[in-house]
């Protein structure tokens, strides 16, 4: 398959971004290849209620 791109004038006034996070990108330019991956592991299985080992610190009890 042949794919032809014509890039004409590109003028952008203002870009306002709060955050670029977890393998994302803000690119002003040309690019051939992008591969972004993000693995996120959050609760509920990340919750440890009570004093389950191995993560609680015995010196900090109370």
């Amino acid at each position: 398959m042949n794919f032809t791109v014509h890039n004409w004038d590109l003028h952008v006034g203002n870009i306002e971004v709060t955050a670029v996070s977890s393998s994302s990108t803000l690119l002003v330019g040309d690019n051939e290849n992008i591969n972004l991956s993000s693995f996120f592991d959050t609760p509920p299985e990340s919750y440890i209620v009570g004093s389950l080992v191995p993560l609680s610190r015995s010196t900090e009890e109370g």
Binding site: A19, S22, S23, S24, L26, S37, F40
Partner: peptide, 26 residues
């Protein structure tokens, strides 16, 4: 361009970029 924060394997680039392969595990 106004950006508050860039974090965790992220990029802000002015210019051409051939290959970008980013990964974040949290």
């Amino acid at each position: 361009i106004s950006v508050l924060g860039i974090a965790a394997s992220s990029t802000l680039q002015i210019g051409n970029l051939n290959l970008l392969d980013a990964e974040a595990r949290i």
